[in-house]
Design a protein around this nucleic acid. Sequence first.
DNA 1: AAGAAATTCAACCGCAAGCCA
DNA 2: ATGGCTTGCGGTTGAATTTCT
Length: 155
Amino acid sequence: APCCQKLGLKQGKWTKEEDGILANYIAQHGEGSWRSLPKNAGLLRCGKSCRLRWLNYLRGGLRRGNFSKKEDDLIVKLHATNGNRWSLIASHLPGRTDNEIKNYWNLHLRRQFHSFKKTYTTNNSTTITIDINMISATNRKRRGGQALGQLPRSS
DNA sequence: AAGAAATTCAACCGCAAGCCA
DNA sequence: ATGGCTTGCGGTTGAATTTCT
């Protein structure tokens, strides 16, 4: 059962108005006390949702999209040694959130650095190496979705 | 032109970890 | 110590958007 569904709390995308209320409240009262925050601030959201929204989107100093090569390398390196410790990885990348890095890894980096190679030896002693990623990467094109590195358009 | 398919990302959920009385 | 409540983490989802047919 969803955590916030008990009292008809809102779910899904945040509106500009909600963002404003949340940011304003935190500006005055600071972060934390997530459980009681929405009630005090007058938001029909659960604390979890408020926290997520603040940390991943509203708080200052966040950069979105346009990962540099340097950042790519760092993510790959940290992931190699730490695995899916997104929060830990994010702590090494100023202005990036764990959520964004996780998304970024899953969408862009995983294919490149997680190779699935398989070698075969045919009966005439020829060895063939097949890399699944190379095959699929060849015909893969960007399709739909939201533009990278863009803030959602205001409605 | 219009429906299908692919892709992206913000936000969700469950549970583990942390906190504190 | 310990049981209940809150916070943080990471895997996963699905509406929105774009491209393909």
